[in-house]
Structures are given as C-alpha cells and as structure tokens.
C-alpha cells in the first residue's frame, strides 16, 4: 500500500515498524504502517495536520501508554526486540528512545537540574564530578554550553524559547539515547532559533537515529535524508528526501508538497 522508492541504500534498521495500526478507542488513527528507521539518516515525517504523525511517533517510545484510550497493533522493534512485548521495561525503552516535544517543556528547575534529571533517575553518574561532566557534555552537544555556562543555577524556564528547546534536546541527549524523536521541534521558534536547531540536528546525525516531524517542507528538505509522507493515517510514500521532493511517485504526495492541499 505504501509506495517505497526502490533506489534506497541498504542501511541497518535501528527501529522497525511492521503493520502498525494505532487506535484511539474505536477510531483508527494509524493504519497499517511499516517503516525502518536507520541510524545513518535523519528521517522526516510529513503530512497534513491530523494525519497521525504525532500518533505514530509517540508509539515509537510508548508515550501512547499515557493516553488511556490509545491501543497499538502490529510490531515495533528496537534492535530487533519487540517493544510492546509483555515484560518490556518502558523506563529502559524511553531512556533509549528520547523525545523532544513541539513546545519546549523544560522543568521549572535550574538549567543544571534539567539536564541532570535523566542521569539521576537512571543512575548514570557516580558522584558529582561525573554528573557535572555529563551536564557539560550534553549542553555542548546541544550547542548551548557557551550561552549558559555562567548561569547553570538559573531556572530553565527563564531561557528564550529557542534556548529552551535546545535545553530539552540536551536533556534528551544526557541519558545517552540511541534514538531521538522530535515532534515539530521548531514550530514555536523564530527563523534564527530554527536554524540553530537544524544545525544541531545535522551534528547529531549519525550518532543517534533521528526522526523529525515537521510541517515545513524546507525544513524536511534541509535536515533529513529520508522522508515519509503520511495522509489520513496511512503512510503514502517513503523514499530519499531528494526524490520525494523532486520526483514523488504518488499524486497525493505531489499535491501536498506543491501546497495544493494542507
């Protein structure tokens, strides 16, 4: 049902979805989606509002569990292991598959405590010096260190929107995940802050498998190498980002990227 471009290079799937459907109560929000998510590339999910991008993204780290009515069918794997199997440790899963939300949501704690939060609950640091190191390294990787190194005790909520979002990315990096899911991470930011985040995604690429949901065609084109187009709960087309944007095989994809419907 999904049109998958045939010229894709071989890549190891970090995560895989097989015939995944997601329901809210009786309502089907995702219908039979199969996709591989490699570490080598940034994968972008695009599609009109309400098509199920967030729903699918949230099923990749079981954040759907927090919604009582949500139910997932099919198989989703991380390194070949089914994450919905009984006995799966959701805490471990979410430590390995981090998430960045649409609206920056730093905790109302200090910048330092925001980053230290994950390492503390997962017991990643032995002692203060190690924790300090993790905090500095995560902030450096998120490109925020220079801006905040003198004010680590200030509240995370006192930063600008763009800084807050990079803080959230740093927070996700701090637990050393393997996959980072980003749900429209730039939609609340101005172009300059957006450019910084995109730069950051470029730098993180290769170290982590990254999935980004975006409404901006340009952003998808800039940061991703793979693009999946969703429509009405179905994954319509999947391929190299360059091919999807220049050479879509499906009429609906063509219509969407040329802005004929939204």
């Amino acid at each position: 049902m999904t049109v998958v471009h045939e010229n894709l290079e071989q890549a190891d799937a970090k995560m895989g979805a097989r015939s995944v459907s997601v329901f809210y109560g009786d309502k089907k929000a995702i219908d039979d989606v199969s996709i591989d998510i490699p570490t080598e590339y940034v994968t972008a999910f695009i599609g009109p509002s309400g098509c199920g991008k967030s729903t699918f993204l949230r099923s990749l780290n079981r954040m759907n569990d927090t919604i009582a009515s949500a139910r997932v069918e099919g198989e989703i794997t991380l390194d070949g292991e089914d994450i919905y199997k009984s006995g799966m440790d959701v805490v471990q899963l979410r430590a390995r598959v981090g998430m960045v939300f649409q609206k920056p949501n730093p905790f109302p704690k200090s910048i330092y405590e925001n980053i230290a939060y994950g390492p503390k609950i997962h017991g990643l640091a032995e002692g203060k010096t190690e924790l300090d190191e993790i905090v500095e390294q995560s902030l450096r990787r998120a490109g925020l260190w220079e801006e905040v190194k003198d004010r680590l005790d200030d509240s995370g909520t006192a930063l600008s929107g763009g800084q807050q979002q990079r803080l959230c990315i740093a927070r996700a990096i701090a637990v050393d995940p393997e996959v980072i899911l980003m749900d429209e991470p730039c939609s609340a930011l101005d172009p300059i802050a957006t450019a910084k985040i995109e730069e950051l995604i470029d730098e993180l690429n290769g170290r982590y498998a990254i999935v980004i949901v975006t409404h901006s065609m340009q952003q998808a084109a800039r940061v991703s190498q793979r693009t999946a187009f969703f429509h009405l709960g179905k994954m319509v087309e999947y391929g190299r980002t360059s091919d999807i944007f220049t050479n879509p095989l499906e009429q609906r994809t063509q219509d969407y990227i040329t802005g004929r419907y939204g």
């Binding site: 979410r94 939300f101 609950i121 997962h122 996700a172 637990v175």
Partner: peptide, 8 residues
C-alpha cells in the same frame, strides 16, 4: 510528558 519521556 517531558519527565515520562525521559524514562522516569
């Protein structure tokens, strides 16, 4: 959600 997504 932010905290749960960190694996808390």
């Amino acid at each position: 959600d932010g905290s749960l997504a960190m694996g808390a």
